[in-house]
């Protein structure tokens, strides 16, 4: 192969890599939008039970109940207006605490409880040593104020 053709080929590969990356990103973001619900949109959307969807919101304060078996939990996801009860079996992520953000993949059960297959917990932008945070261990929101005091 002539060097010039080789260069051309590599340029074409580079362009395709770029296009591919862009398309993956666009597809991922669109797919994300089509099945993402908050408690409010879920309440008005009339989603069929059993359909795989994603639910996002905040974990309501005081709503996490751990069952005696150690792996089953229930909690409530809330947004500004509505709440949605969620059941989950498995190990929860480290950042899954009351008052912080959570995204759950799963489906609505016939009883209206959202059964989650997986949980994603969100981190806020604060990094605080454990000893400094003993004021209120369960609140992920107040740390900024505690720090600035």
């Amino acid at each position: 192969m002539k060097p010039k053709h080789q260069r051309l080929l590599l340029a074409v590969i580079a362009v395709f890599a770029l296009l591919g990356a862009g398309l993956i990103a666009a597809a991922a973001l669109r797919e994300e939008a089509s099945y993402f619900y908050t408690p409010t949109t879920l309440a008005s959307a009339n989603v069929a039970p059993g359909k795989a969807i994603r639910l996002g919101g905040m974990v309501q304060k005081g709503s996490i109940v751990r069952a005696a078996d150690g792996v089953s939990i229930t909690f409530t996801v809330q947004d500004k207006d509505k709440t949605q009860k969620v059941a989950y079996r498995g190990i929860t992520p480290d950042l899954f605490v009351e008052g912080s953000g959570v995204v759950a993949d799963g489906r609505l059960g016939p009883d209206g409880i959202f059964v989650a297959d997986s949980l994603l917990a969100k981190h806020d932008e604060n990094y605080v040593p454990k000893e400094l945070a003993d004021i209120d261990m369960n609140s992920a929101e107040h740390t900024k104020d505690t720090l600035s005091k």
Binding site: A25, A28, E32, D94, F96, L120, K122, H123
Partner: peptide
Amino acid sequence: RPTWGTWWVWDG
């Protein structure tokens, strides 16, 4: 993996 609960998400 240990903090969020996933190796990867397609976020921005």
